[in-house]
Design a protein around this nucleic acid. Structure first.
Lengths: 196, 196
DNA sequence: GTCTATATGGCGATAGAC
DNA sequence: GTCTATCGCCATATAGAC
Protein backbone atom coordinates (compact mmCIF):
# COMPACT_ATOMS: atom_id res chain seq x y z
CA UNK A 1 0.00 0.00 0.00
CA UNK A 2 1.29 3.40 -0.95
CA UNK A 3 0.43 6.58 0.88
CA UNK A 4 -0.53 9.78 -0.92
CA UNK A 5 2.77 11.30 0.09
CA UNK A 6 4.68 8.48 -1.63
CA UNK A 7 2.53 8.73 -4.74
CA UNK A 8 3.31 12.43 -4.95
CA UNK A 9 7.04 11.91 -4.52
CA UNK A 10 7.07 9.22 -7.18
CA UNK A 11 5.10 11.36 -9.64
CA UNK A 12 7.31 14.37 -8.91
CA UNK A 13 10.37 12.23 -9.52
CA UNK A 14 9.13 11.25 -12.95
CA UNK A 15 8.22 14.77 -14.02
CA UNK A 16 11.26 16.57 -12.55
CA UNK A 17 13.62 13.98 -14.05
CA UNK A 18 12.34 14.59 -17.56
CA UNK A 19 11.58 18.32 -17.41
CA UNK A 20 13.91 19.67 -14.73
CA UNK A 21 12.92 22.24 -12.10
CA UNK A 22 12.22 25.04 -14.61
CA UNK A 23 10.34 22.90 -17.12
CA UNK A 24 8.20 20.95 -14.64
CA UNK A 25 4.63 22.00 -13.84
CA UNK A 26 2.80 21.32 -10.60
CA UNK A 27 -0.32 20.48 -12.61
CA UNK A 28 1.53 17.77 -14.50
CA UNK A 29 2.83 16.25 -11.28
CA UNK A 30 -0.69 16.24 -9.85
CA UNK A 31 -2.03 14.51 -12.98
CA UNK A 32 0.76 11.95 -12.88
CA UNK A 33 -0.05 11.21 -9.24
CA UNK A 34 -3.80 11.05 -9.93
CA UNK A 35 -4.61 13.71 -7.36
CA UNK A 36 -5.39 17.40 -7.14
CA UNK A 37 -2.89 20.22 -7.38
CA UNK A 38 -3.80 21.57 -3.95
CA UNK A 39 -2.70 18.34 -2.31
CA UNK A 40 0.85 18.90 -3.48
CA UNK A 41 0.96 22.06 -1.42
CA UNK A 42 -0.72 20.36 1.50
CA UNK A 43 2.13 17.84 1.72
CA UNK A 44 5.07 19.86 0.43
CA UNK A 45 4.21 23.56 0.90
CA UNK A 46 5.92 24.72 -2.30
CA UNK A 47 7.38 23.61 -5.61
CA UNK A 48 10.84 24.34 -4.24
CA UNK A 49 10.39 22.05 -1.24
CA UNK A 50 8.99 19.28 -3.41
CA UNK A 51 11.88 19.62 -5.80
CA UNK A 52 14.40 19.47 -2.97
CA UNK A 53 12.86 16.25 -1.68
CA UNK A 54 13.09 14.71 -5.15
CA UNK A 55 16.59 15.94 -5.84
CA UNK A 56 17.79 14.71 -2.46
CA UNK A 57 16.50 11.21 -3.16
CA UNK A 58 18.05 11.03 -6.63
CA UNK A 59 21.32 12.65 -5.67
CA UNK A 60 21.87 10.51 -2.59
CA UNK A 61 21.31 7.33 -4.55
CA UNK A 62 23.68 8.52 -7.24
CA UNK A 63 26.54 9.60 -5.04
CA UNK A 64 26.21 6.52 -2.87
CA UNK A 65 26.78 4.41 -5.94
CA UNK A 66 29.83 6.43 -6.88
CA UNK A 67 31.35 6.33 -3.42
CA UNK A 68 31.35 2.54 -3.32
CA UNK A 69 34.29 2.40 -5.70
CA UNK A 70 36.27 4.48 -3.24
CA UNK A 71 35.13 2.99 0.02
CA UNK A 72 35.59 -0.72 -0.61
CA UNK A 73 39.09 -2.02 -0.12
CA UNK A 74 39.21 -4.46 -3.04
CA UNK A 75 42.29 -4.29 -5.30
CA UNK A 76 42.04 -1.24 -7.50
CA UNK A 77 41.66 -3.06 -10.84
CA UNK A 78 38.84 -5.27 -9.66
CA UNK A 79 37.28 -2.28 -7.99
CA UNK A 80 37.31 -0.39 -11.26
CA UNK A 81 35.73 -3.28 -13.15
CA UNK A 82 32.99 -3.74 -10.61
CA UNK A 83 32.28 -0.05 -10.65
CA UNK A 84 31.93 0.19 -14.43
CA UNK A 85 29.55 -2.76 -14.60
CA UNK A 86 27.33 -1.74 -11.73
CA UNK A 87 27.38 1.96 -12.52
CA UNK A 88 26.39 1.54 -16.16
CA UNK A 89 23.65 -0.90 -15.19
CA UNK A 90 22.41 1.65 -12.68
CA UNK A 91 22.32 4.49 -15.20
CA UNK A 92 20.72 2.29 -17.86
CA UNK A 93 17.91 1.65 -15.39
CA UNK A 94 17.63 5.41 -14.69
CA UNK A 95 18.64 7.00 -17.98
CA UNK A 96 17.41 10.51 -17.16
CA UNK A 97 19.49 10.88 -14.01
CA UNK A 98 22.77 12.11 -15.55
CA UNK A 99 21.42 15.02 -17.55
CA UNK A 100 19.06 15.87 -14.68
CA UNK A 101 21.89 16.18 -12.17
CA UNK A 102 24.14 18.01 -14.64
CA UNK A 103 21.38 20.49 -15.38
CA UNK A 104 20.39 21.17 -11.80
CA UNK A 105 23.86 21.54 -10.28
CA UNK A 106 24.63 24.12 -12.94
CA UNK A 107 21.33 25.92 -12.46
CA UNK A 108 21.84 26.15 -8.70
CA UNK A 109 25.32 25.10 -7.50
CA UNK A 110 24.35 25.88 -3.91
CA UNK A 111 22.14 22.83 -3.87
CA UNK A 112 25.19 20.58 -3.73
CA UNK A 113 26.29 21.63 -0.27
CA UNK A 114 22.73 21.33 1.00
CA UNK A 115 22.40 17.80 -0.38
CA UNK A 116 25.80 16.72 0.86
CA UNK A 117 24.74 17.53 4.39
CA UNK A 118 21.40 15.76 4.08
CA UNK A 119 23.02 12.65 2.62
CA UNK A 120 25.62 12.51 5.35
CA UNK A 121 28.42 12.79 2.83
CA UNK A 122 31.07 15.41 3.18
CA UNK A 123 33.87 16.43 0.85
CA UNK A 124 36.63 15.68 3.35
CA UNK A 125 35.69 12.04 3.23
CA UNK A 126 36.49 11.86 -0.47
CA UNK A 127 39.60 13.97 -0.28
CA UNK A 128 41.13 12.04 2.60
CA UNK A 129 40.96 8.86 0.58
CA UNK A 130 43.56 10.24 -1.78
CA UNK A 131 46.11 10.56 0.98
CA UNK A 132 45.86 6.96 2.06
CA UNK A 133 44.49 4.23 -0.12
CA UNK A 134 45.63 5.55 -3.48
CA UNK A 135 48.92 7.21 -2.77
CA UNK A 136 51.09 4.58 -4.41
CA UNK A 137 49.44 4.70 -7.82
CA UNK A 138 51.43 6.13 -10.70
CA UNK A 139 48.55 8.26 -11.95
CA UNK A 140 46.50 11.09 -10.50
CA UNK A 141 43.45 9.60 -8.82
CA UNK A 142 41.23 12.62 -9.28
CA UNK A 143 41.79 12.50 -13.03
CA UNK A 144 41.24 8.79 -12.91
CA UNK A 145 37.86 9.08 -11.18
CA UNK A 146 36.71 11.94 -13.39
CA UNK A 147 37.71 9.95 -16.47
CA UNK A 148 35.82 6.91 -15.31
CA UNK A 149 32.70 8.95 -14.62
CA UNK A 150 32.91 10.79 -17.93
CA UNK A 151 33.34 7.58 -19.90
CA UNK A 152 30.29 6.03 -18.25
CA UNK A 153 27.99 9.05 -18.05
CA UNK A 154 28.57 10.93 -21.30
CA UNK A 155 26.99 8.39 -23.69
CA UNK A 156 23.78 8.65 -21.66
CA UNK A 157 23.79 12.42 -21.20
CA UNK A 158 24.45 13.05 -24.90
CA UNK A 159 22.39 10.16 -26.17
CA UNK A 160 20.02 12.07 -28.47
CA UNK A 161 22.91 13.65 -30.32
CA UNK A 162 25.14 10.60 -30.62
CA UNK A 163 22.23 8.37 -31.51
CA UNK A 164 21.32 10.77 -34.31
CA UNK A 165 24.81 11.32 -35.68
CA UNK A 166 26.31 7.85 -35.39
CA UNK A 167 23.27 5.55 -35.34
CA UNK A 168 20.71 7.25 -37.57
CA UNK A 169 18.30 7.35 -34.62
CA UNK A 170 18.29 3.57 -34.37
CA UNK A 171 17.49 3.22 -30.69
CA UNK A 172 18.02 -0.52 -30.49
CA UNK A 173 21.47 -0.21 -32.05
CA UNK A 174 22.33 2.40 -29.47
CA UNK A 175 21.28 0.09 -26.64
CA UNK A 176 23.72 -2.48 -27.98
CA UNK A 177 26.39 0.19 -28.12
CA UNK A 178 25.76 1.06 -24.48
CA UNK A 179 26.00 -2.58 -23.51
CA UNK A 180 29.29 -3.06 -25.36
CA UNK A 181 30.57 0.02 -23.68
CA UNK A 182 31.23 -1.75 -20.37
CA UNK A 183 33.92 -3.96 -21.94
CA UNK A 184 35.37 -1.09 -23.93
CA UNK A 185 35.80 1.13 -20.86
CA UNK A 186 37.23 -1.68 -18.75
CA UNK A 187 39.81 -2.71 -21.34
CA UNK A 188 40.74 0.91 -21.88
CA UNK A 189 41.25 1.61 -18.21
CA UNK A 190 43.09 -1.66 -17.56
CA UNK A 191 45.56 -0.87 -20.30
CA UNK A 192 46.07 2.56 -18.84
CA UNK A 193 46.61 1.15 -15.34
CA UNK A 194 49.40 -1.21 -16.40
CA UNK A 195 52.71 -0.38 -14.78
CA UNK A 196 54.45 -0.59 -18.20
CA UNK B 1 29.39 48.99 -35.16
CA UNK B 2 26.79 46.52 -33.99
CA UNK B 3 23.21 46.45 -35.17
CA UNK B 4 20.32 46.02 -32.78
CA UNK B 5 19.73 42.58 -34.18
CA UNK B 6 23.27 41.54 -33.30
CA UNK B 7 23.01 43.03 -29.81
CA UNK B 8 19.86 41.00 -29.23
CA UNK B 9 21.42 37.78 -30.44
CA UNK B 10 24.48 38.31 -28.25
CA UNK B 11 22.34 39.07 -25.18
CA UNK B 12 20.11 36.09 -25.89
CA UNK B 13 23.17 33.90 -26.20
CA UNK B 14 24.40 34.92 -22.75
CA UNK B 15 21.05 34.41 -21.04
CA UNK B 16 20.03 31.17 -22.79
CA UNK B 17 23.47 29.65 -22.17
CA UNK B 18 23.20 30.16 -18.43
CA UNK B 19 19.49 29.60 -17.89
CA UNK B 20 18.42 27.34 -20.73
CA UNK B 21 15.20 27.72 -22.74
CA UNK B 22 12.88 27.07 -19.77
CA UNK B 23 14.77 29.23 -17.27
CA UNK B 24 15.42 32.22 -19.54
CA UNK B 25 13.17 35.29 -19.46
CA UNK B 26 12.60 37.67 -22.36
CA UNK B 27 12.79 40.59 -19.92
CA UNK B 28 16.27 39.54 -18.83
CA UNK B 29 17.43 39.29 -22.43
CA UNK B 30 16.05 42.76 -23.14
CA UNK B 31 17.85 44.18 -20.11
CA UNK B 32 21.09 42.48 -21.11
CA UNK B 33 20.78 43.98 -24.60
CA UNK B 34 19.90 47.40 -23.22
CA UNK B 35 16.66 47.61 -25.18
CA UNK B 36 12.96 47.13 -24.74
CA UNK B 37 11.19 43.80 -24.56
CA UNK B 38 8.96 44.61 -27.51
CA UNK B 39 11.97 44.91 -29.78
CA UNK B 40 12.80 41.26 -29.24
CA UNK B 41 9.51 40.35 -30.83
CA UNK B 42 9.97 42.88 -33.59
CA UNK B 43 13.16 41.13 -34.70
CA UNK B 44 12.45 37.51 -33.73
CA UNK B 45 8.67 37.12 -33.51
CA UNK B 46 8.74 34.72 -30.54
CA UNK B 47 10.90 33.29 -27.77
CA UNK B 48 11.04 30.00 -29.67
CA UNK B 49 12.42 31.62 -32.81
CA UNK B 50 14.98 33.58 -30.83
CA UNK B 51 16.04 30.44 -29.02
CA UNK B 52 16.43 28.55 -32.28
CA UNK B 53 18.65 31.26 -33.69
CA UNK B 54 20.85 31.11 -30.59
CA UNK B 55 20.94 27.34 -30.45
CA UNK B 56 21.78 27.11 -34.12
CA UNK B 57 24.77 29.41 -33.70
CA UNK B 58 26.12 27.56 -30.66
CA UNK B 59 25.45 24.11 -31.99
CA UNK B 60 26.98 24.76 -35.40
CA UNK B 61 30.16 26.09 -33.84
CA UNK B 62 30.33 23.11 -31.52
CA UNK B 63 29.78 20.39 -34.06
CA UNK B 64 32.10 22.06 -36.55
CA UNK B 65 34.87 21.85 -33.97
CA UNK B 66 34.14 18.17 -33.39
CA UNK B 67 34.00 17.27 -37.04
CA UNK B 68 37.51 18.57 -37.68
CA UNK B 69 39.04 15.56 -35.97
CA UNK B 70 37.22 13.35 -38.41
CA UNK B 71 37.60 15.35 -41.57
CA UNK B 72 41.31 16.11 -41.59
CA UNK B 73 43.53 13.36 -42.93
CA UNK B 74 46.42 13.73 -40.49
CA UNK B 75 47.71 10.51 -38.86
CA UNK B 76 45.23 9.40 -36.24
CA UNK B 77 47.45 9.91 -33.19
CA UNK B 78 48.39 13.47 -34.06
CA UNK B 79 44.80 14.11 -34.96
CA UNK B 80 43.70 12.96 -31.54
CA UNK B 81 46.27 15.19 -29.80
CA UNK B 82 45.32 18.24 -31.80
CA UNK B 83 41.68 17.63 -31.11
CA UNK B 84 42.10 17.34 -27.34
CA UNK B 85 44.13 20.55 -27.11
CA UNK B 86 41.91 22.66 -29.31
CA UNK B 87 38.64 21.22 -28.04
CA UNK B 88 39.44 21.78 -24.36
CA UNK B 89 40.64 25.30 -25.12
CA UNK B 90 37.39 25.93 -26.95
CA UNK B 91 35.23 24.68 -24.08
CA UNK B 92 37.30 26.56 -21.50
CA UNK B 93 36.52 29.73 -23.44
CA UNK B 94 32.80 28.79 -23.53
CA UNK B 95 32.29 26.85 -20.32
CA UNK B 96 28.49 26.90 -20.39
CA UNK B 97 28.18 25.28 -23.79
CA UNK B 98 28.38 21.58 -22.78
CA UNK B 99 25.64 21.56 -20.17
CA UNK B 100 23.53 23.86 -22.37
CA UNK B 101 23.65 21.47 -25.31
CA UNK B 102 23.16 18.41 -23.11
CA UNK B 103 20.14 20.01 -21.50
CA UNK B 104 18.48 21.20 -24.67
CA UNK B 105 18.93 18.07 -26.78
CA UNK B 106 17.30 16.08 -23.99
CA UNK B 107 14.50 18.60 -23.54
CA UNK B 108 13.70 18.54 -27.26
CA UNK B 109 15.54 15.85 -29.25
CA UNK B 110 13.79 16.96 -32.45
CA UNK B 111 15.92 20.10 -32.48
CA UNK B 112 18.95 18.05 -33.52
CA UNK B 113 17.62 17.13 -36.93
CA UNK B 114 16.53 20.72 -37.52
CA UNK B 115 19.96 22.07 -36.62
CA UNK B 116 21.80 19.43 -38.64
CA UNK B 117 19.99 20.62 -41.75
CA UNK B 118 20.65 24.29 -41.04
CA UNK B 119 24.35 23.67 -40.37
CA UNK B 120 24.76 21.69 -43.56
CA UNK B 121 25.89 18.63 -41.62
CA UNK B 122 24.22 15.32 -42.12
CA UNK B 123 24.59 12.04 -40.28
CA UNK B 124 25.65 10.11 -43.36
CA UNK B 125 28.78 12.19 -43.56
CA UNK B 126 29.91 11.01 -40.14
CA UNK B 127 28.91 7.44 -40.64
CA UNK B 128 30.63 7.06 -43.98
CA UNK B 129 33.93 8.05 -42.43
CA UNK B 130 33.95 4.85 -40.45
CA UNK B 131 33.88 2.73 -43.53
CA UNK B 132 36.91 4.35 -45.10
CA UNK B 133 39.46 6.26 -43.12
CA UNK B 134 39.27 4.32 -39.91
CA UNK B 135 38.61 0.79 -41.01
CA UNK B 136 42.04 -0.59 -40.21
CA UNK B 137 42.13 0.44 -36.57
CA UNK B 138 41.99 -2.30 -33.96
CA UNK B 139 39.37 -0.50 -31.88
CA UNK B 140 35.81 0.64 -32.48
CA UNK B 141 35.91 4.21 -33.71
CA UNK B 142 32.49 5.16 -32.41
CA UNK B 143 33.52 4.13 -28.90
CA UNK B 144 36.76 5.95 -29.44
CA UNK B 145 35.08 9.22 -30.40
CA UNK B 146 32.50 9.01 -27.64
CA UNK B 147 35.27 8.33 -25.12
CA UNK B 148 37.26 11.30 -26.29
CA UNK B 149 34.24 13.58 -26.06
CA UNK B 150 33.27 12.29 -22.64
CA UNK B 151 36.77 12.72 -21.26
CA UNK B 152 36.91 16.32 -22.48
CA UNK B 153 33.37 17.45 -21.80
CA UNK B 154 32.44 15.81 -18.51
CA UNK B 155 34.76 17.82 -16.22
CA UNK B 156 33.12 20.99 -17.53
CA UNK B 157 29.54 19.75 -17.45
CA UNK B 158 29.87 18.39 -13.91
CA UNK B 159 32.17 21.15 -12.66
CA UNK B 160 30.10 22.37 -9.69
CA UNK B 161 29.89 18.87 -8.25
CA UNK B 162 33.49 17.81 -8.81
CA UNK B 163 34.81 21.15 -7.68
CA UNK B 164 32.86 20.78 -4.45
CA UNK B 165 33.71 17.15 -3.74
CA UNK B 166 37.35 17.00 -4.78
CA UNK B 167 38.52 20.61 -4.56
CA UNK B 168 36.56 22.09 -1.65
CA UNK B 169 35.14 24.71 -4.02
CA UNK B 170 38.59 26.07 -4.81
CA UNK B 171 37.93 27.43 -8.26
CA UNK B 172 41.54 28.26 -9.09
CA UNK B 173 42.65 24.75 -8.21
CA UNK B 174 39.99 23.40 -10.53
CA UNK B 175 41.24 25.58 -13.38
CA UNK B 176 44.66 24.02 -12.92
CA UNK B 177 43.05 20.59 -12.93
CA UNK B 178 41.33 21.38 -16.23
CA UNK B 179 44.61 22.56 -17.73
CA UNK B 180 46.46 19.40 -16.63
CA UNK B 181 43.67 17.39 -18.09
CA UNK B 182 44.86 17.83 -21.68
CA UNK B 183 48.07 15.89 -20.99
CA UNK B 184 46.25 13.29 -18.95
CA UNK B 185 43.73 12.55 -21.71
CA UNK B 186 46.36 12.47 -24.43
CA UNK B 187 48.64 10.06 -22.56
CA UNK B 188 45.67 7.88 -21.73
CA UNK B 189 44.47 7.70 -25.31
CA UNK B 190 47.94 7.20 -26.74
CA UNK B 191 48.53 4.25 -24.47
CA UNK B 192 45.23 2.79 -25.52
CA UNK B 193 46.02 3.26 -29.21
CA UNK B 194 49.29 1.35 -29.05
CA UNK B 195 49.23 -1.78 -31.19
CA UNK B 196 50.77 -3.81 -28.28
C1' DG C 1 12.82 51.18 -35.42
C1' DT C 2 11.87 51.97 -30.79
C1' DC C 3 9.10 52.94 -27.16
C1' DT C 4 4.85 52.57 -23.44
C1' DA C 5 0.86 50.38 -22.35
C1' DT C 6 -1.89 46.51 -22.31
C1' DA C 7 -3.99 42.13 -23.65
C1' DT C 8 -4.06 37.23 -22.66
C1' DG C 9 -3.01 33.14 -20.63
C1' DG C 10 -0.78 30.16 -17.34
C1' DC C 11 1.51 29.42 -13.14
C1' DG C 12 2.21 28.69 -8.03
C1' DA C 13 -0.24 29.14 -4.10
C1' DT C 14 -4.32 29.72 -0.90
C1' DA C 15 -9.29 29.80 0.91
C1' DG C 16 -12.74 27.32 2.32
C1' DA C 17 -16.45 23.59 1.75
C1' DC C 18 -16.88 18.75 2.72
C1' DG D 1 -7.15 14.60 3.83
C1' DT D 2 -9.09 15.85 -0.39
C1' DC D 3 -11.57 18.58 -3.28
C1' DT D 4 -13.32 23.10 -6.19
C1' DA D 5 -12.79 27.73 -6.94
C1' DT D 6 -10.09 31.58 -7.14
C1' DC D 7 -6.42 34.99 -6.10
C1' DG D 8 -2.38 37.43 -7.58
C1' DC D 9 1.45 37.49 -10.20
C1' DC D 10 4.40 37.09 -13.97
C1' DA D 11 5.38 35.54 -18.66
C1' DT D 12 4.92 35.98 -23.67
C1' DA D 13 3.08 38.58 -27.03
C1' DT D 14 0.65 42.53 -29.36
C1' DA D 15 -1.37 47.41 -30.25
C1' DG D 16 -0.45 51.62 -31.28
C1' DA D 17 1.91 56.25 -30.44
C1' DC D 18 6.10 58.55 -31.86
Amino acid sequence: MTTTEQKILEAARQVFLKKGMDGARMQEIANEAGINKALLHYYYRSKDKLFEAVFNEIFTQFITKISLVLLSDAPVKEKMSLFVDSFIDKIAANPFVPQFIIGEINRDPAIIKKMMQKSGFNPDMFVSLFGTQFKNLHFDVRHFIVSLLGLCIFPFAARPLIENVYFNNNSEAYDVFLFERKEYIKSMMLKFMEEE
